[in-house]
Amino acid sequence: MASTQDLIQARRGIIRDALGIGIATGAYALSFGAISTAAGLSLLQTCALSVLMFTGASQFALVGVVGSGGSVWAGAATAALLGSRNALYGVRLSSLLDGGWWKRAAAAHFVIDETTAMAIARDTASESRLAFWATGLAVFTLWNLGTLIGALATHALPDPKVLGFDAAPPAAFLALLAPRLRAREPMAIALGAGVVALVTLPFVPAGVPLLIVAVLVALFGVLRTGR
């Protein structure tokens, strides 16, 4: 039986970890604010993405496609495809989230990589809930603050390309991709996806190679299942 002291210690540890993750994502949001502004989105559009979309990889994808000359609709489709994994996170978190529909609707907005990783693998449901909400609030606050600062700082610059801002998005995508490449299959998929995207790029509208890759990966996943 855990003592009250242990429980308080555990809860403090969770809140400390949540703040640490919030600070790390806030720093990462600086680069989102900068890349989005350099891609040509207004300050308000950049901040709207962080408040309303609030899922990093999708946000980077939308502004990355727009910044490289693709249509905002190709960017939006890529963002939604990248956001599909949040639906699976939601399934894992669903049983932990209590309260009425409005609380569930609010919680849904916080269902992202960081909150899921923090909430699962806790000893009790109440610790999971605390980890979810503490991480969600910390990341949401600092993610939006970081976005605003990054965007404002970039607005003040004369020519983003001189500062190498066009080389920033691929580095951001690489950093997001790396943790997902821990096995042979995802490594092979990543290489194949890169080749397919480059081979199709000269012949279709900008952003469409990404959608072709998504369809092929989905087909691959479905056809391989059950063998």
Partner: peptide, 13 residues
């Protein structure tokens, strides 16, 4: 698997 393919395609393009 979808994010793996999309992120790799984004890096490449």
């Amino acid at each position: 698997l979808v994010p793996v393919g999309l992120l790799a395609a984004l890096v490449a393009t």
